[in-house]
């Protein structure tokens, strides 16, 4: 079967972001960018399905600026077969991304679409579910285990109280949780080979979709800073402070 994987270019997870002085957003100039960690897990899962002989082709797609080609090349180096970039200059909402992905799904007809459960920049946790509604496919969100059984998919999901297992009819959508797998590193020969793999660039217009959003960001502020705390010298002092100063025990 064909597997479609969506990846996003985001600020590297180790970067401590700074809010711009004019409160218009987060300062991303000269900041290290990477593939969203949940998307890496999605790519890894697709590549593993290919290695098991379940998947025949892994297509990786990104919606974003032209620099997102770097993240697509990374996915190709990890084992994806070809890439598609839907190029947009401005930041697009989850709904617009889901609509772009729906257009790509219509074109490519994958049996399985794998996405990360959330992007670590916007923290929305929406795109996979929205694609589910738009395409009519069932969804297995926050997956920590995925098994293909004939024309069905068995997905174990991380829920608030523990784990839940659901069966989905293919074609279906999976969004990855952190514990689904441990992504591999790309080797140098594979990085070189990835440069030769096909990468197609499309525009939202060519897909017939609009990226307009009904949500406008008015301002972005730094969260309230916590006052500096103190170091206590002993457990006795800690208990005394918690009882008499903070009054929380």
């Amino acid at each position: 079967m064909k597997v479609l994987v969506a990846v996003k270019r985001v600020v590297d997870y180790n970067v401590k972001v700074r809010v711009k002085a004019d409160n218009s957003g987060v300062d991303l100039a000269n900041v290290k960018m990477s593939m969203n960690p949940f998307c890496e897990i999605a790519v890894e899962e697709a590549v593993r399905l290919k290695e098991k002989g379940v998947a025949t082709e892994v297509v990786v797609v990104s919606i974003g600026p032209s620099q997102a080609q770097e993240q697509l090349r990374t996915a190709l180096a990890l084992g994806a077969d070809r890439g598609i970039l839907v190029e947009t200059a401005e930041e697009v909402s989850s709904l617009a991304v889901a609509k772009a992905l729906k257009a790509v799904v219509d074109k490519e007809q994958p049996q399985l679409v794998i996405l990360g459960k959330q992007a670590i920049d916007t923290d929305n946790n929406q795109t996979g579910q929205m694609l589910g509604a738009l395409s009519g496919m069932p969804q297995g969100t926050f997956a920590s285990r995925v098994e293909v059984e004939g024309d069905a998919l068995k997905v174990t999901r991380e829920i608030d109280g523990g784990l839940q297992t659901v069966a989905l009819k293919l074609p279906a959508i999976v969004t990855t949780d952190l514990r689904l797998n441990e992504p591999r590193y790309a080797s140098l020969p594979n990085i070189m080979k990835a440069k030769k793999k096909p990468l197609e660039t499309l525009s939202p217009d060519a897909l017939g979709i609009s990226v307009a959003s009904s949500v406008k960001t008015l301002k972005v502020e730094a969260p309230a800073a916590r006052g500096a705390g103190i170091k206590v010298a002993s457990v006795a002092e800690l208990v005394e402070k918690l009882k008499n100063e903070a009054k929380v025990i």
């Binding site: 987060v26 923290d123 972005v220 730094a222």
Partner: peptide, 15 residues
């Protein structure tokens, strides 16, 4: 909150 709570966005919806 966005960026793991390191920024707070104020958003307006016209939906």
């Amino acid at each position: 909150p966005i960026y793991a709570g390191n920024a707070i966005a104020t958003v307006q919806s016209s939906a």
